[in-house]
Amino acid sequence: MEQTPSLLESLKEVYDPELGVNIVDLGLVYEVKEEAERVYVRMTLTTPGCPLHDTIVGAVRWVLQQKTGKDAIEVELVWEPQWTPQLMSDNAKEMLGYF
């Protein structure tokens, strides 16, 4: 998985509104990379029918556009690998009571 560390850190500003945890600590971001003309993100959501799909993806685009100044922000939403609670950081697990 290729990552641009500062962009991944920036994505911690995007929260899943239902869970109150950022998408990076939830383990939803699989890849983020900055290229010459665009920023590419491969991510998932906790469930395929997530009603906040547009809100979360829109926030990802907004944060990355603000950080990089680029208009071309490509967010690819994937369902494989499927998200599971094991993908969460220890911090997220603690916040949500998974310990």
Score class of each variant (00 low, 15 high):
residue 2 E to F: 06
residue 92 A to T: 08
residue 97 G to F: 05
residue 84 T to Q: 14
residue 74 E to D: 12
residue 46 T to Q: 10
residue 76 E to Q: 14
residue 38 R to D: 00
residue 82 Q to L: 07
residue 36 A to I: 11
residue 90 D to E: 15
residue 90 D to G: 10
residue 3 Q to K: 13
residue 95 M to V: 06
residue 61 R to I: 14
residue 54 D to L: 06
residue 27 G to N: 08
residue 68 T to S: 13
residue 82 Q to D: 00
residue 18 E to V: 07
residue 78 V to A: 07
residue 26 L to G: 07
residue 41 V to M: 12
residue 74 E to Y: 14
residue 22 N to R: 04
residue 32 V to S: 12
residue 17 P to G: 02
residue 23 I to G: 13
residue 12 K to G: 14
residue 16 D to T: 05
residue 28 L to V: 08
residue 1 M to T: 08
residue 68 T to F: 08
residue 80 E to A: 12
residue 60 V to C: 05
residue 58 G to D: 14
residue 40 Y to I: 09
residue 32 V to W: 13
residue 24 V to R: 09
residue 37 E to I: 12
residue 90 D to R: 08
residue 73 I to T: 07
residue 92 A to W: 00
residue 24 V to A: 13
residue 48 P to M: 12
residue 23 I to L: 09
residue 73 I to F: 13
residue 27 G to R: 05
residue 36 A to E: 15
residue 88 M to Y: 02
residue 31 E to R: 14
residue 87 L to Y: 10
residue 7 L to G: 03
residue 81 P to H: 06
residue 83 W to V: 07
residue 4 T to W: 08
residue 72 A to E: 15
residue 15 Y to W: 06
residue 72 A to S: 01
residue 71 D to I: 05
residue 87 L to Q: 02
residue 84 T to F: 07
residue 85 P to E: 05
residue 98 Y to F: 14
residue 22 N to L: 01
residue 63 V to Q: 03
residue 96 L to F: 01
residue 83 W to F: 11
residue 68 T to D: 06
residue 40 Y to F: 15
residue 52 L to M: 04
residue 85 P to S: 03
residue 51 P to N: 02
residue 30 Y to L: 09
residue 52 L to A: 05
residue 35 E to D: 13
residue 31 E to T: 07
residue 30 Y to G: 12
residue 20 G to C: 09
residue 42 R to K: 14
residue 54 D to A: 15
residue 71 D to P: 02
residue 42 R to Y: 04
residue 64 L to I: 03
residue 29 V to R: 13
residue 13 E to K: 11
residue 90 D to I: 09
residue 61 R to L: 02
residue 54 D to Y: 13
residue 80 E to S: 05
residue 29 V to H: 06
residue 50 C to K: 01
residue 2 E to V: 15
residue 64 L to H: 05
residue 63 V to D: 07
residue 8 L to H: 08
residue 47 T to M: 14
residue 96 L to E: 11
residue 11 L to Q: 05
residue 1 M to G: 08
residue 60 V to Y: 03
residue 62 W to F: 01
residue 20 G to Y: 06
residue 34 E to W: 10
residue 86 Q to N: 01
residue 72 A to N: 11
residue 55 T to F: 13
residue 99 F to W: 12
residue 24 V to C: 09
residue 53 H to P: 11
